[in-house]
Nucleic acid binder design. Structure first.
Lengths: 369, 369
DNA sequence: AAGTCCGATGTGACCGATCACAATAGCCGA
DNA sequence: TCGGCTATTGTGATCGGTCACATCGGACTT
């Protein structure tokens, strides 16, 4: 073995197989002009010597890179983390290497830098563009770099070269809203995740359901991604007596909202119905268990990688990819609205059990930020 | 510019600065024998040409690699995800590139393969060895590869070359247990995360508190990492009337346990007190808000990277690293035990409000797995 | 004033792969 | 029988860095 680093190189394999190093290179890159017996000999030798192509050398020489860097503004929020998990699985399956780089929002220079540093070692990029930071990053990726993106919804004038994937959530948001209306609620409010385009698909689905039912559409609140935003916005909604149903942009927001309702003395689902979005693993264990719209981000991650790969493989077998579809999961956090006769007995809701306004908790949560 | 790939190379910089490429190499590697004026000229040229060293070439030539691969069995459980986040931040700060590879447990070949594939592109490795899969992976890393690990507790005969970091959680677990005892509970049960060594530090802290109080130590349940395990184990504990306080190995388990208690007709914290571990971001928004032991995994991730770096920098400034310390956070899920006189009125606890056994929910949760 | 040492810089080879191009062989038809 | 074509294989240069070693002054010894 020549390489003093312990691993076999392409020339070691060539020598052992009695061919030239170029032939070995052809074999590992599936080049057509290698005779079957030669190919087999080389493959056997590769196996025997436990040879693995060196990524650095390959990248340097301009060969296929087989590594991807994921750009995201966050790695621990459920949607992002689950997507990352799916991408990782897929890269592993295809022998790719996955890198991760967080892109800091709100600093144009930072975004450029992140993109640059992501391109350099990888060659291919996946952008999780659920939020503005991601979209900015996607926009800064030069056209020469293979890229795929996970987006909240298909863009109108989608650049054909920019392949993107998304979860079909419009119908499910509509269904969730209709579900609440069927339960007897006279309207449904919406605590949305932020959107830089003015409206998310889930928001449009919600709006459409209300409009089709001939109802006026309440002003949606853009509440951020985190539970604290849900709590804050929920606190405002809790003050309005006519709010009996809230569709939240994600499960964290829903949890915050439920807590805010609780602290305001309104119980869920007896007084207010709350539906989340995502179906985080814990959703079924909360009390009340969260009625929510399931989104399979892990599958989306896999699909996204597949899309990137099909772009890389330059036109071969561009099989139709199945995009995940969101799906309403009914549990406990939504139910019929309280009886109209009880509407004004705010501190003594339907069940007749007192739910005091939890002032201490309110103070604590405000303090903890 | 020579490089037809658009970026400047070390030779371009050399030509522009009027020095040899080797001098440029010396400058970017902080080699001492370069005269200050020359160094400055080169640095200016680098700036002007927007030169960035090529990772692939550097790795190929055996230079400093500046990239790390994180090996973990999971990337979305809170502790793992938060640690990853911390590592990512640190790598970004130091101009490193971070890769992630999931190591599948229970397949020795898979572990070896994961390690091998992690070493190849990176050169340095961080292992999140909170669980058995991680420990196995750590064990398979060849001694020649720079590595740092995050572990649940310092190992006894710790290999000096294997640098590892951990959170000091013993005292906090003890404090949490004592807190429950002070509230009046006659004993505290423990739903532990799994341990391959027989006992986690948090388990030892809990045990020690009980022993010092002269109490007998109940058999701990090793319940896995996920909420479903907490639910299952919690269901068993709920049947025992003398269980009034449970210390859970993490917050997810705590949530599952609370739900199990709820479904068994026992409310938290009125009938049973529950304390979690980790302080996940949502802990304060749950109802009841989780009393838990905070662990700063993000900080641990940063420390771990720092440790790896100090090993890489070969002996220079090995500053004492501050390990994170776990800390009890008191919220709502733990309180005084129910009055002894009410002990047997199981369906009508202290508050006099009926909490029916939630059979439907129980069935649903069992079905959803 | 000659010899020695050291700081600063330059030259050649190499890491492990790829690309472009050359070379060899075998087969066919004219 | 010979030229030409194609299928297969081999050779040299290259990617962008690093390492080992050579070179060259100038300061310091003796």
């Amino acid at each position: 073995m020549t390489g003093h680093r312990g691993t076999a190189s392409i020339r070691d394999v060539a020598r052992a197989a009695g061919v030239s190093y170029q032939t070995v290179s052809r074999v590992i890159n599936d080049h057509p002009s290698v005779s079957p017996p030669t190919r087999q000999t080389v493959l056997d030798t590769i196996e025997r010597l436990e040879y693995r192509p060196n990524r650095a050398a390959r990248a340097l020489a301009g060969g296929p890179v087989q590594s991807v860097t994921v750009l995201a503004s966050n790695t621990s929020l459920y949607g992002f983390a689950a997507a990352l998990e799916g991408i990782e699985e897929a890269t592993r399956e295809f022998g790719f290497v996955m890198g991760v780089r967080v892109v800091e929002p709100d600093t144009p220079a930072g975004v450029r830098d992140a993109v640059e540093r992501a391109i350099e070692p990888a060659g291919a990029i996946i952008v999780i563009a659920f939020d503005k930071a991601g979209v900015d990053a996607l926009a800064s990726v030069p056209a020469t770099v293979p890229v795929a993106a996970m987006v909240p919804a298909p863009t109108e004038g989608e650049h054909p070269a920019r392949s993107s994937v998304w979860i079909d959530e419009y119908a499910a948001a509509k269904e969730a809203t209709n579900y609440l209306l069927r339960l007897g609620h006279t309207t449904v409010h919406h605590l949305s995740i932020p959107s830089w385009t003015g409206a998310t698909k889930r928001m449009l689905g919600w709006r459409s359901a209300l409009q089709e039912a001939g109802l006026s559409v309440p002003k949606p609140l853009l509440a951020g991604w985190e539970a604290s935003w849900g709590y804050e916005a929920g606190g405002k909604l809790a003050k309005k007596r006519d709010v009996t149903a809230v569709l939240c942009g994600n499960d964290d927001i829903a949890v915050g909202c439920i807590r805010a309702m609780h602290d305001a003395g309104r119980s869920v689902p007896e007084d207010v119905s709350i539906i989340g979005f995502d179906d985080v693993p814990l959703a079924q264990f909360y009390t009340p268990a969260l009625t929510t719209v399931r989104q399979d981000f892990k599958a989306l991650g896999r699909v996204c990688f597949a899309k990137l790969l099909s772009g890389l493989a330059n036109g071969t077998r561009e099989q139709r990819l199945r995009y995940p579809v969101a799906q309403l999961v009914i549990r406990e956090s939504a139910g019929p609205p309280p009886k109209p006769s009880h509407r004004h007995a705010t501190t003594l809701p339907a069940h007749g059990r007192a739910v005091p306004v939890n002032k201490r908790a309110f103070a604590r949560l405000s303090k903890e930020k």
